[in-house]
């Protein structure tokens, strides 16, 4: 229970948290679990680049802002009207942080009382991944990468230890990257 709460307080990136727990729960090594979490967390780096341009911050506030850099706060900051970017970012970041951690605490308390499988919670985790994935399937390129990742993982499950199939699926982005043209001159 303390571990679930620590994940929400310290890691605070839904997809990475679920991945870390999912890989460990399936019997994967700590290394595979952390690697999956980091790969899923890499998009936050790009969010932060965009946020740093919209919300100028220095020193300790920047350290705090880094922790709150997630899908929701980035969406609110970039979607906010001119001059309101910082407000959108802090409002979304802080409120999601508070509610996410409260929900984690309640969930962790409940897990000690009933068997999560009887509640279908193992099925809920797969559904959560699907719900996180669906909004990103905007064009044929992302659909191809998703199908590729799914097929690689399915093929690898019987062959490789738990956790590794998910890492292997990262290779599905390689064909797309190879075909991405280098930009001409400074952009």
């Amino acid at each position: 229970m303390a571990q679930a709460c620590a994940l929400s307080l310290l890691l605070f990136t839904g997809a990475s948290q679920f991945a870390l727990v999912g890989v460990l729960g399936a019997g994967g090594t700590a290394l595979a679990a952390v690697a999956s979490a980091l790969m899923l967390g890499s998009r936050n780096t790009l969010y932060a680049v965009r946020l740093a341009a919209l919300v100028p911050l220095r020193g300790p506030r920047r350290l705090l802002a880094a922790q709150l850099t997630i899908d929701e706060s980035t969406a609110m900051a970039t979607g906010a009207p001119e001059g309101q970017h910082a407000r959108g970012f802090w409002a979304a970041g802080l409120s999601v942080y508070v509610f996410w951690n409260l929900a984690t605490l309640l969930g962790a308390l409940g897990a000690g009382v009933v068997d999560p499988r009887r509640l279908g919670l193992d099925a809920a985790v797969g559904a959560a991944f699907l719900a996180l994935l669906a909004p990103q399937l905007r064009d044929s390129r992302t659909v191809r990468v998703a199908v590729g990742g799914a097929l690689l993982a399915a093929a690898a499950v019987p062959l490789l230890p738990a956790g590794v199939p998910v890492l292997l699926a990262a290779l599905a982005v390689v064909p797309v990257l190879v075909r991405t043209p280098k930009p001409e001159g400074p952009s």
Partner: peptide
């Protein structure tokens, strides 16, 4: 794209 591949595998 990396999250797309990983989420789909997950």
């Amino acid at each position: 794209l990396l999250p797309v591949a990983l989420l789909s595998a997950l």
